[in-house]
Design a binder for these strands. Structure first.
Length: 183
DNA sequence: AGGATGATATCC
DNA sequence: GATATCATCCTC
């Protein structure tokens, strides 16, 4: 199995968000290999993107977003759920891609339709914030067999506060996939 | 439509 | 130190 290289992540978030569709997220935990296929993502472009966490000042929470590409940015939301992002672009460019839904591939029994639920299903929490995604226990790969699919672009979810940025089509999902969180 | 639930940012 | 806010999900 071949991990995605650092150069994959060192591109603009909009491109990475689309190319992550169909890729597999692998997590090795307690001797078990958990695998999910990414079916839905959202791009957060940087400080100029009013929906991105990095649009506010650089803080301890968002520090990872400002770092080099290929690292996990994980944070607690609404006191109960975690959200997982992949940091994109070179250090200093605070952009990232939110993983919003997975199709279960291996060792997943819980619901993975939604950013909070997929983190719960894969055992992703703040302990892996800042984790290198070119590591041996938490990484992304290309699927063994490549399949073609349509990509749908829609406005991002839960960012109504972001003015004109709320309506930009930066949410991407695989057409007709039953594991997308919502249409 | 409203509640759970707590870290974080932003005020005083 | 206090409070408003949240890139969510579930139940009613």
């Amino acid at each position: 199995m071949h991990r995605l290289p650092r150069t994959f992540y060192n591109r603009d978030a909009e491109t990475v968000a689309q190319e992550l569709l169909g890729m597999q997220l692998v997590r090795r935990k307690d001797g078990i290999e958990i695998i999910g296929r990414i079916v839905e993502t959202e791009a957060y472009l940087g400080p100029h993107d009013l929906a991105a966490h990095s649009a506010r000042d650089r803080t301890p929470r968002t520090e990872v977003m400002f770092g080099p590409p290929g690292y996990a940015y994980v944070y607690l939301i609404y006191g109960m759920y975690h959200c997982m992002n992949v940091v994109t672009e070179e250090a200093g460019m605070a952009s990232a891609v939110l993983i919003r839904a997975l199709e279960p591939i291996q060792n997943i029994s819980l619901n993975t339709k939604g950013p909070g639920l997929l983190c719960k299903a894969m055992g992703i929490d703040k302990n892996v914030n800042g984790h290198d995604l070119l590591s041996n226990d938490f990484f992304l790969t290309e699927p063994p067999t490549k399949e073609s699919f349509g990509i749908i672009a829609r406005p991002r979810i839960g960012v109504d506060y972001a003015g004109e940025w709320a309506t930009k089509p930066l949410r991407f999902y695989i057409a007709d996939n039953p594991y997308v969180s919502r249409k």
